[in-house]
Design a protein around this nucleic acid. Structure first.
Lengths: 174, 174
DNA sequence: TTCGGGGTAGAGTGATCGCTCTACTTGCGT
DNA sequence: ACGCAAGTAGAGCGATCACTCTACCCCGAA
């Protein structure tokens, strides 16, 4: 990945996160990317490609933020993951999950739906491994997704509720 | 609400549910509503009003589907609510929550954000009352939201995971 | 010194969009 | 019988959109 490409991807992610996927015109995206229209189209030959580039950037940054350097103890790791999802929402995603937003804006795109599925599957699998809750991966996904959607409405109270839910789940598994 | 208005609202809801909020043109919406362009604009004077009319219709139908005629026993009611969310997803919302989709398509609209908040607050409050879990309303919202988001990825396995989570929550509350 | 790859600036194009307007029809109360 | 409210059909308008194209600049290697 060239320097120009990563600069473009970061700018596109910022623009779509701010304005959603429907509204920003290609000119707005160009300004956010900080390159000329010709260069933007060279690296991302259509607006749809710009969306994909932004999501790829988002995917890597999200995984990094939530899963890098977790504590070894599985219960500590569980609480850390949920708290980090909260800080991610606060700093980056006050409007909600960007992948769901992309699918919502164009629900009939198979490419976007596959991208969403891949992203969530990797999140769930990494969370299951770090928390030691592999036998309840779907429950874990429900908690993380629920927290992501409830955070815009309840803020940190949603984080605490998610942590209590995860604790109850762990207890119920013995 | 006149006959024409409810026919329009039902058609608009169908059109936005199928195509998302960004893509369908007003001509497509007119076809879905089954009226002339002039009549459509008489009842919903702008495309934004068409979105609001569709969401209002959705709100009523969703509450009806999930909460009408629940069993009295709180544990049965809990399972029934989560199962009904699953059947709702299967029949009506295979692309995800329509309210989140609307906000995602236009994340800077205060009107839409307020609408989303009102909808989710009413869902959470009705769920808390029916399940007897008023002290854990936020946890309940996390479960319902998590189920809604996880269903497109895992189908009925998400419903079962949500039911297990709700059970663990009830046990942990004593 | 020259030349080519990779960048900028920005005008232009055809299509599509939200929305309005004119002209006509239909059904009902008096 | 008549008038009016409420509907249909669809052409037209101005703005905006995604995308292309021309013309130019800069810099490092041969």
């Amino acid at each position: 990945m060239t320097d120009t490409m990563s600069k473009i991807a970061a700018g596109l992610e910022r623009a779509f996160a701010r304005g959603g996927f429907a509204e920003p015109s290609v000119e707005t995206l160009r300004d956010a990317a900080g390159v000329s229209l010709r260069t933007l189209y060279k690296y991302t030959p259509s607006r749809d490609d710009m969306v994909l580039a932004a999501l790829e950037n988002r995917h890597q940054r999200y995984l990094s933020h939530v899963f890098d350097g977790l504590p070894d103890n599985t219960e500590d790791a569980t609480n850390a993951i949920l708290a980090r999802v909260g800080t991610w929402m606060a700093k980056e995603a006050s409007h909600g999950c960007l992948f769901h937003a992309a699918v919502a804006a164009d629900p009939n795109s198979d490419t976007l739906r596959r991208f969403l599925k891949r992203h969530k599957a990797e999140v769930a699998s990494r969370a299951a491994a770090a928390t030691g809750l592999e036998v309840a991966e779907t429950e874990l996904l429900v908690i993380v997704e629920g927290l992501t959607q409830a955070w815009p409405l309840h803020g940190d109270a949603a984080v605490e509720a998610a942590i209590r839910l995860a604790h109850a789940l762990r207890v119920s598994l013995g």
